[in-house]
Design a protein around this nucleic acid. Structure first.
Lengths: 116, 116
DNA sequence: CGTCAACATTCATGGACGTGTATATACATA
DNA sequence: TATGTATATACACGTCCATGAATGTTGACG
């Protein structure tokens, strides 16, 4: 759990592994089939993901089933929450009903507008 | 905007710059004072952050004021939302009414409550 | 025990990347 | 124009890291 979350997710292969595990636990060979690298590389990535707390292992026979753990995602969610005021500052004070209409004007680079 | 979000945030110095800009726009030298690397490195990091959409520049005299842009944070939020069911599976089924009341206590996120 | 399958680990390698030094560019002011 | 300040860019260097090939380890089964 020493390695930080962003560095772990920086590698695109690792992200593909994580997204593949979104559907549930998978064995290493299942992941090898979905990622275009060698089996040794997948095992190394799984080791990194495990050390970062992203995955856990459950041995079943000669296979090892990997699955996701929630902690790093919560940590990431908490981090991005600290920046949510960048696009929700006014709307928070305003009410959540407006928040869903937000998607109509999502590309606006000027966060200054004054509703009468 | 071509570089992906995670790779950009992987560097800790870049994250320190981003967190420093959370308080508002800053000039390059202000950031140099808060990060323990050379000015050239800060400029390079700002270039990377700009190309990834994290920051925007506003020239003022001989200075250049950098500030945050919301888009990459929204993208990150959307990504982690895809994994929120890992720790919110029950609440998701519950309804969004609860999720919106969560914002009343946004500074202290302890999402541990035990439904019977 | 021998063999095969699934997976982990070691080793060497090439490339990407962050950093410092030095230099270039832009702006303001005298 | 000249000079200083603020920032960007060029270059070289060292380090980290993802990858493949080869080898080691563990479990199942005859």
């Amino acid at each position: 759990m020493n390695v930080d979350v962003f560095q772990t997710l920086a590698d695109p292969t690792r992200r593909r592994i994580v997204e593949a595990l979104k559907g549930g636990e998978l064995a290493v060979n299942d992941l090898v089939a979905r990622v275009d690298i060698q089996q040794s590389g997948v095992s190394r990535h799984l080791g990194i993901l495990q050390e970062a707390g992203f995955v856990q292992v459950r041995p079943e026979g000669t296979k090892r089933l990997y699955s996701l753990r929630p902690e790093p995602f919560q940590e990431l969610d908490a981090w991005v929450t600290g920046y949510r005021s960048l696009w929700e500052a006014r709307l928070d004070r305003f009410g959540q009903a407006l928040e869903q209409r937000r998607k109509t004007r999502m590309g606006t680079p000027k966060p200054e507008e004054e509703p009468p």
